[in-house]
Write a protein that binds this DNA or RNA. Structure first.
Length: 570
RNA sequence: CGGGACGUAGCGCAGCUUGGUAGCGCACCUCGCUUGGGACGAGGGGGUCGCAGGUUCAAAUCCUGUCGUCCCGACCA
């Protein structure tokens, strides 16, 4: 491709509305163009990157025994009503009516469709297991799309679904997919960590996420992991062994239950300082509204509530912290002094986090303004539930070593669905004994567009993108410094043609611009290798530069061609 | 959903306070010159100032409404 013909416009400045580095670079380097919030055109450079990622996925999925198909993007409400998700999915599901007033939606995922595809088609145990996948656009009307391709509303996803007659068979395929995913991301030049996770709206029991670990804040997930063993989990699922699991207020002089005045002492921090006790001796009370009903969460003062865990513990659909006004309405006390004391459990559900299990003689809000109670003990043992967020340094549940935390971008996930969809949708096969049974299912997703963005988050510098060569839009950028110079241009053309003939993806920057412009663009766009044909051609030499290392070598044109072949075709 | 900010040329912005011919930089087109790190000179094209009302002789500017975009928060008591 000649640069003069390539559909690309690089910008001198970063766009104003981008926050994430991948978003800024994708726009500035001419890969994407926004149409509206969370919805982008993938320009030719981007399309090449996406095609490469897709191709790697395709090859590895096929090698793992899966078959590609393509399902409809527009779906009738009927199948969603059947699975029970029409009501549950919420506003992320973009719904509309067709001309006959039939309820429809845009596909955010395809469990319902694949189930109806397989159901009635593969009806014998002899035909199972099977794994089907597609690479397709999805639409999720996110509350807050941001970070460009990292959280768009419209995005490209590879989604695979497997059907089994037994849990053992599903387990096997789950492992098979985990291995395939590892290979896929490795081939994309990305290191990933497979972590335990919550299964969220998709449902099911066992699930793992593949995370690209980043130091940037753009990773929207916290991942807790152990350096000593294999344990790692998304913060929404991670568990730990508490530090100081047993705390006793008596160690700080509060061995008798007593109501104390604590004027204007509202936060745990202030209370801890005021009473001279560590926050781990305080039981704090946090009010949530779950599906419009109040839930009071009791949790150790040094811990925080993990909302996804709470959501799951309650079996609720939606959850949010209550406002101060709501707290007053439900508990009859201003925030800062709340507790479950005197609260009618028929009106306000009370949940007690596991972190409170080992607490004795603790401090608790009096549920009266400006008063707390010290030396308190549970009068009856509550049911302790884990709804707390792990903290870095707490101990690994597997091997007791301190856990670490890092940010991560979720690029893929694998779920065991079991019969969550096959049962309600009545999707069955006939087993050896002639009995009808629901399929046991698994599903496996990879965000294609997000993987590309994650690669940029991981690999960039002040000059631009540094693509792993496996997913770069082109491999080599040949730059004649002066296109007017027939010798330079001649050699550049010769290199260009030879690389083309060798099957290498190459761009010839034949634009009449000055060298600086071409170098800047080359680095911004992120070509892995650059061959500069400039004044050293007088000595028969060109320059070979590696984008990743910045290393520059002088060599003959033929040597440069050979080097490209060695680096790219082996 | 709540809070804040912003909508003026493809991109980045000024102009608005105090109403009076729509501007700058980049990009784009032409010519010249230049060619190893985002050159320079001259000329040129492109905008119903988000949209709809209102006030006024006159609105990018003032008022009202509306739509859109971005950020922050979903406050752990």
């Amino acid at each position: 491709m000649r640069m003069s013909k390539l559909f690309v416009q690089t910008l001198r400045e970063f766009p104003n509305d981008a926050e994430a580095i991948s978003h800024k670079l994708l726009v500035r380097a001419g890969y994407i163009k926004k149409l509206t919030s969370g919805i982008y055109s993938y320009l030719p450079l981007m399309q090449r990157v996406l095609a490469k990622i897709s191709q790697i996925i395709r090859e590895e999925m096929n090698a793992a025994g899966a078959q590609e198909l393509l399902m409809p993007f527009v779906q009738p409400a009927e199948i969603w009503q059947k699975s029970g998700r029409w009501e549950v999915y919420g506003r992320e599901l973009a719904r509309f009516c067709d001309r006959h007033d039939n309820k429809m939606c845009l596909a955010p995922t395809h469990e319902e469709v694949i189930t109806s595809v397989v159901s009635g088609t593969f009806t014998s145990y002899k035909q199972l297991p099977i794994n089907l996948y597609q690479i397709q656009t999805k639409f999720r009307d996110e509350i807050r799309p941001r970070f460009g391709l990292l959280r768009g509303r419209e995005f490209i996803m590879k989604d695979a679904y497997s059907f089994h007659t037994s849990q053992e068979s599903l387990d096997e395929e789950y492992e098979n997919m985990a291995r395939a995913y590892k290979r896929i991301f490795e081939r994309c030049g990305l290191e990933t960590k497979m972590v335990q996770s919550d299964s969220g709206a998709i449902g099911g029991s066992v699930s793992h996420e593949f995370m690209v670990l980043t130091s940037t804040q753009t990773g929207e997930n916290d991942v807790f992991y152990c350096e000593n063993c294999d344990y790692s989990a998304n913060s929404n699922h991670a568990v730990s062994i508490l530090l100081n699991p047993q705390t006793n207020g008596a160690d700080y002089g509060y061995d008798k239950e007593q109501k104390l005045d604590t004027p204007n002492v509202k936060t745990i921090e202030q209370l801890s300082e005021f009473l001279k006790v560590p926050s781990s001796c305080i039981l704090k009370s946090v009010l949530y509204i779950a599906d419009s009903k109040p839930v009071l969460v009791m949790i150790r003062g040094d811990k925080e509530v993990e909302e996804t865990k709470l959501l799951n513990a309650l079996g609720a659909l939606e959850i949010r912290p209550a406002t101060s006004d709501e707290a007053y309405d439900y508990l009859g006390c201003e925030v800062g002094y709340l507790s479950f004391l005197g609260v009618d459990e028929n009106k306000v559900k009370i949940i007690c986090d596991k972190s409170a299990q080992g607490m004795k003689n603790f401090v608790i809000g009096a549920n009266e303004p400006h008063k707390h109670i010290v030396g308190y003990n549970f009068t009856k043992t509550p049911d302790f539930v884990d709804v707390s967020l792990v903290k870095e340094g707490e101990l690994c549940p597997c091997c007791n070593k301190p856990l670490k935390v890092t940010r991560g971008i979720e690029v893929g996930n694998i779920f065991q669905l079991g019969t969550k969809y096959s049962k309600p949708m009545n999707a069955t096969y006939t087993d050896e004994n002639g009995e009808e049974k629901p399929f046991i299912m698994g599903c496996y997703g990879i965000g294609v567009t997000r993987t590309a963005a994650a690669a940029i988050e991981r690999y960039h510098d002040d000059f631009g993108i540094i693509w792993p060569k496996e997913i770069a839009p082109y491999h080599v950028d040949v730059v004649p410094v002066n296109t007017e110079d027939s010798e330079q241009m001649g050699v550049a053309l010769e290199i260009y043609n030879k690389l083309l003939n060798a099957g290498i993806e190459v761009v010839l920057d034949d634009r009449a611009d000055r060298a600086g412009v071409k170098f800047k663009d080359s680095e911004l766009i992120g070509f892995p290798y650059r061959i500069t044909v400039g004044k050293t051609i007088k000595e028969g030499l060109v320059e070979f530069k590696c984008r990743k290392t910045g290393e520059v070598e002088k060599m003959t044109a033929d040597e440069a061609i050979e080097k490209c072949k060695t680096l790219l075709l082996s």
